[in-house]
């Protein structure tokens, strides 16, 4: 029983460290490349490459990784509440923003889904 707890703790620390390592590798790439692409996206691509090349086994990142993915929606709550900061801007331009974003989002959803469904058959 004691050993199990120890193993679980080690696995959690290991998986968290790997994710943080890849995040910071991504941030270094962003810093060096000056591209308008966030470090986390580079980190995602690097981790995906490392998994595909079998440099890191999936089990090594699953404990923290699946926890983060389970609660990713929760992390967006403060992001959404942050809309409060922009209430002035949004209320000034709301007609243009709402009309163009709603129509464009609907058009994008349907066209991507429809095109892929046709192409992938």
């Amino acid at each position: 029983m004691k050993k199990n707890i120890f193993i679980t703790a080690t696995e959690l620390v290991r998986s968290a460290s790997i994710l943080v390592l890849f995040l910071y590798l991504g941030k270094v790439i962003q810093y060096l490349s000056h591209l308008p692409i966030p470090g986390s996206i580079f980190g995602l691509l690097l981790l995906f490459s490392a998994l595909s090349l079998r440099l890191i086994p999936l089990d090594y990142i699953l404990p923290t990784g699946s926890f983060l993915l389970n609660y990713i929606t929760l992390f967006f709550v403060p992001v959404g509440v942050g809309l409060l900061q922009y209430s002035q801007l949004l209320s000034t331009y709301w007609v243009t923003i709402v009309v163009s974003s709603v129509i464009s989002t609907i058009a994008t959803l349907i066209s991507v889904g429809w095109l892929y469904q046709r192409l992938s058959k």
């Binding site: 968290a16 994710l19 943080v20 890849f22 995040l23 991504g26 966030p38 470090g39 986390s40 996206i41 980190g43 995602l44 691509l45 981790l47 995906f48 998994l51 999936l58 990142i61 699953l62 923290t64 990784g65 699946s66 983060l68 993915l69 609660y71 990713i72 992390f75 967006f76 992001v79």
Partner: peptide
């Protein structure tokens, strides 16, 4: 959110 985006590699 940042490490969670990295975890989307899974």
């Amino acid at each position: 959110l940042e490490p969670a985006v990295v975890a989307l590699a899974i």
